[in-house]
Nucleic acid binder design. Structure first.
Length: 638
RNA sequence: GGCCCCCUAGCUCAGUUGGUUAGAGCAGCGGACUCAUAAUCCGUUUGUCGUAGGUUCGAGUCCUACGGGGGCUACCA
């Protein structure tokens, strides 16, 4: 069977500004692709942009241009940045391309005919200000204005029908969702019954999308658009040979889009009768200077910041740090200090200096020509063996996505070579025994070139440069063997491979920063601020008395009661999680205290128009009532 | 509320199915060396392995409770 590797990045939303998160996913895919190519795999590396939706439509309108033009421009920002970073993607797909639209529509039609897509009434929270539906959670976070419930007809994908099969699949395929903690998360998520997925929007609200092939009044909404790129790009339904060649994929994603990729996408594929991806690997996030990245904190790592780092360390220096410290299994921190320090210690001191010292010795004692090795002693054999073991282990580490471990092992090998030189001290030996000196330098150089080959996917530019040098600028053949170098080859003299960086500029910038409050003290300030709130904040909360008119259990729940309360002239419905502590009957007639101006929420399909106050301590809960009687309800509490 | 993960040297982390004196890298300190990008090499840290119990001949490694941090999820409002 042919060895093939198909790797994808997420499709980046055109309206986003590319930052270190996008860059990490893409560089990670690039490194993997390069390693697999090196192993002789035929490799296909896909990335691209997701271009439909409300935000794009709005942004284009605002700019007074067509959405097409807007997308062209913004998509290019991603593409040209990947080119600037010299990433080796094989294909860049845009969801507005005909090749994609065609496939999306075919799949929609297939599933519609099959009965997996049906029309139903949709109820949801809609933010008029944002012009989009929001989730319950987003609503609770309270960042959206003019929220109202909307009822409209929409199309749904029968996702629930595939829940059981998906669970079985995940349980029997350990490599399907990685790392394991993400897999557990999804299995946990699937413990709850799955809802069907709303996949359409009426055109009168959203026109910038792919039209449903069976109803021209609607377009499809994110899932059936963006996710399908992974198969539309390789010819699903249009070029079956190509599709069979590449599918199934390894999807590299960030943890923020875990559910869509591990639940929505696989069920969609199941419905379409397509085998599931080989692996979905969800990496973590980059923190910045110990904090979550945010524009207001000023620690956001955007394109400009990345360029600035690269201008000092080169592309490879940047890639090295991402590979070594990247958030594969958890989150990682990108601190400037650590970044430059790692560059200096690992690349400049250990690696770059090693190259330099070997080449200087060869130049000095062998006129710059690779010496011919004599008989290898045990020390050389050991060094050789260490390199060969590394070759063997490298790829199995990659199969488990342990890139940072691999980088560490490679660096360990570089250190071994340094230690070897120290032990043998060829600069001393050269005065008495030139032949053995030659053997030593050859051994050091042989080990170095092997390490360079294994490092090449992470450090493509510098390693190419180094290997070319070691081959006397002849055409490179990478054999991944220890004794790949030809004795007698003249090595051209060059500048330092990884020049050491003077770190004084870091002190300057950090001194400036200390003037501003540090993030930590910021947090403390916030905490102190919470201890006391201004009166005006409290006045925003409208507390009122309310008389319970009726109460009943919410069907199918253990903890919820639906209360109808009289608040002055009005009657409100509330849902409260107090069924464990109160029977419905004992509540009727009681006067309680409610927060009357809380944003309504829908719980179990019932709209709750307020929150009642209660005191809870462990297993006891008592309602807040008032002392004595008031003639009426709905009294404002001051 | 439920579920999951984490808490090991100043920092970042390894520690396989429980087994002799708990490790690596970085930083710090001391030394060696001079081929080298003030580099490299060697040596160096008396760590209550979050806390308290328990199982065991024996626990960082298993169990329970608690504390702290993170994540997912819900019928918290």
């Amino acid at each position: 069977m042919a060895k093939r590797f198909y790797v994808t990045t997420p499709l980046y939303y055109v309206n986003d500004l590319p930052h270190i998160g996008h860059t990490y996913s893409t560089i990670l895919a690039d490194i993997l692709a390069r390693y697999y190519r090196m192993q002789g795999y035929e490799t296909h590396f896909l990335t691209g942009t997701d271009e439909h939706g409300q935000k794009v439509q709005q942004a284009a309108e605002k700019a007074g241009i067509s959405p097409e033009k807007h997308c062209d421009e913004y998509s290019q920002r991603f593409r040209s940045f990947w080119d600037e970073l010299r990433l080796t993607y094989d294909d860049f797909i845009r969801t507005t391309e005909q090749r994609h639209v065609e496939v999306v529509q075919k799949i929609l039609m297939d599933l519609y005919k099959k009965g997996d897509i049906y029309k139903d009434r949709y109820e949801g929270l809609y933010s008029v200000a944002e012009e989009r539906f929001i989730t319950q959670k987003e609503y609770e976070e309270g960042n959206f204005r003019e929220v109202k419930e909307i009822h409209e007809e929409n199309y749904f994908f029968r996702m629930s029908a595939y829940q059981r099969d998906l669970m079985t699949y995940i349980e029997s395929h350990k490599e399907f969702i990685q790392p394991e903690n993400r897999r557990n998360e999804i299995l946990g998520f699937l413990q709850q019954p799955l809802n069907d997925l709303c996949i359409s929007r009426p055109k009168n609200r959203l026109s910038w999308g792919i039209e449903l092939p069976f109803d021209p009044n609607y377009v499809t909404y994110v899932w059936f658009d963006a996710l399908i790129n992974y198969i539309s790009a390789i010819g699903y339904k249009t070029n079956e040979t190509l599709f069979k060649k590449w599918w199934p994929a390894v999807h590299i994603i960030g943890k923020d889009i875990l559910t869509t990729h591990c639940v929505y996408w696989p069920t969609m594929l199941m419905a379409a009768g397509v085998s599931l991806p080989k692996t979905i690997f969800a990496h973590g996030w980059w923190m910045s200077e110990g904090q979550k990245m945010s524009k207001s904190l000023g620690n956001f790592i955007d394109i400009q910041t990345i360029r600035e780092h690269i201008s000092r360390t080169g592309h490879d220096g940047f890639r090295y740090f991402l590979a070594k410290e990247g958030p594969l299994f958890g989150d990682s921190d990108f601190s400037k200090e650590r970044f430059y320090q790692t560059y200096n210690t690992d690349l400049a001191n250990d690696f770059g200096n090693l190259v330099n010292r070997i080449l200087t010795l060869i130049e000095k004692y062998f006129d710059g020509k690779i010496p011919t090795p004599g008989k290898l002693s045990d020390t050389e054999k050991l060094l050789k063996q260490e390199g060969e073991t590394l070759c063997k282990n490298a790829f199995s580490l990659l199969d488990r996505f342990e890139l940072n471990r691999l980088v560490f092992e490679l660096l360990t090998y570089i250190r071994s070579i340094n230690r070897y030189l120290e032990q043998k001290a060829p600069w001393k030996l050269a005065k008495t025994n030139l032949e053995e000196t030659g053997t030593i330098l050859y051994a050091a150089l042989a080990s170095l070139q092997l390490a360079a080959q294994l490092f090449e996917p992470v450090l493509p530019e510098k390693m190419h440069q180094l290997l070319t040098m070691l081959h006397g600028s002849q055409e490179l053949t990478r054999t991944l063997t220890w004794d790949a170098l030809k004795p007698g080859t003249l090595i051209p003299k060059t500048k330092a491979l990884f020049p050491r960086i003077d770190l004084t500029f870091l002190e300057e910038t950090s001194n400036k920063k200390q003037v501003k409050p540090q993030p930590n003290t910021n947090q403390q300030n916030e905490q102190e601020a919470i201890k006391y709130i201004p009166l005006e904040d409290f006045k925003k909360v409208q507390l009122k008395t309310a008389r319970v008119l009726s109460a009943e259990n919410v069907e199918g729940t253990k903890n919820l009661l639906k209360l109808t309360v009289e608040v002055g002239p009005e009657t409100h419905t509330l849902v409260a999680g107090i069924a464990k502590y109160y029977n419905p009957d004992e509540l009727v007639g009681k006067t309680i205290v409610i927060v009357a101006n809380l944003q309504p929420v829908t719980i179990r399909g019932i709209q709750s128009m307020g929150m009642l106050l209660a005191a809870q301590d462990k297993d006891t809960l008592r309602l807040v009532t008032i002392d004595g009687d008031l003639p009426k309800s709905g009294v404002i509490i001051q």
